[in-house]
Simulated assay, not measured.
Amino acid sequence: MRVLLVLGTSAGGVGRHVHGLTSGLVAQGHSVVVACPQEVEDRFGFTGTRARHVALAVTDRPHPLRDLRALSTLGDLLRHADVVHAHGLRAGALSCLAATGSQVPIVVTLHNAAPGGGLTGRVYAVLERVVARRATLVLGVSADLVERMAELGARVGGLAVIPGPPPPQQAVDASAVRSGLDVAPGQVLAVVVARLAPQKGLHLLLDAIGRARDLPLLVVVAGDGPQREELQQRIDSEDLPVRLLGHRGDVPALCAAADLVVSSAVWEGQPINLQEALHAGAAVVATDVGGSAAVLGGAAVLVPGGDAQALADGIRLLVTDPEERARRQELSRQRARELPTEADAVAAALGVYADVTFVDRPAAGAP
């Protein structure tokens, strides 16, 4: 099968997922072309899997000239593909538009919720309608995304299979990790893995920690992003026991050394960081948003999204009750054994491709 994979700007989960698909498809003898920005190829190295890369300038925001060039490039690539699998709303909409008049099936996986409000929200609402009306099949990383596209009239295929990274093969020296973080004797270590951006709800996290400042707690946040300065200013001004670590390459080790892992996200799809926490056997407290509950499968303490007091109470429970913390750690290890693998993701994708290449496809409608 000749598969064209399309994605835009990615620095994390989407790129890793597409790399896993690319590697698995090529290993099974399929011909794969990955169309994406050059910097995404540089980061993830799709050509290292023996796939072919074609530079495609697809960014998070519309750009008339670049988008016209992208449509032209995709139109050329479509003529040599049996199926197109686009990842993300922008990449999906451009692929659908480029396929106007073509019989090549377009599969779109949505990895994030579309922004709402303002001009950006209106633009993305148009892109949603384009994908809903023109894509052959739409997948989502969480049930709310699937429901949204079904409401817009899309033919939906349910949840996409997004595996997390495999568990570490070597045992982690948790005491060495904790020593490197200057965790004091008797202190409980909470690890947060998040980009410092609004979606991750880090101001909510600080609200919760402020309400739990009587606990013997140290919170470390692994990740970087545009909110770093404002978060650090607030940590300093409120004297919160929170440390911003910046980007870390040892997230599995941090999770393994943690007493608990916390997610304060406003929305998540199938969060990689929580899958890493499960593989590490960490007790987890998380906001019940997007696809988090589906990933965690009952292992975590789930609290309502946007509720700082509930998040503080969940943290307090695991800090003050070692037996409950140990029970949650065992539940995490059990759940980790149920998580999908890269092989599962490739098998699921091939099943979708087989389905869409043999369905009767209506003529493309107007957006």
Rank of each mutant, 00 (worst) to 15 (best):
A11G: 15
H19G: 09
S23M: 05
A27L: 10
H30L: 07
T47Y: 02
T49P: 12
R50F: 06
R50E: 10
A51G: 14
R52Q: 15
P62R: 09
P64I: 10
R69Y: 13
R69N: 15
A70E: 11
L71T: 15
L77D: 13
A81H: 03
V84C: 14
A98I: 06
V104L: 06
P105W: 03
V107P: 03
A125T: 14
A125K: 09
V130Y: 03
V138A: 05
E147H: 15
G153C: 09
P163C: 04
G164H: 09
P166F: 01
Q170R: 07
R178N: 12
D182T: 14
G186L: 12
P198T: 07
G201K: 03
L202N: 11
D214C: 00
A222D: 05
G225N: 02
G225A: 00
Q227S: 07
L231H: 01
R234K: 01
S237A: 15
D250Y: 04
A253W: 05
L254R: 04
C255H: 12
D259R: 02
E268V: 13
Q270S: 15
L278Q: 06
V284G: 08
G290M: 04
A299Q: 10
P322I: 01
E330T: 02
R333Y: 00
R335P: 08
A336S: 09
R337G: 07
L339V: 00
A343I: 00
V359G: 13
R361P: 07
P362Y: 04
A363D: 15
A363I: 13
G365Q: 13
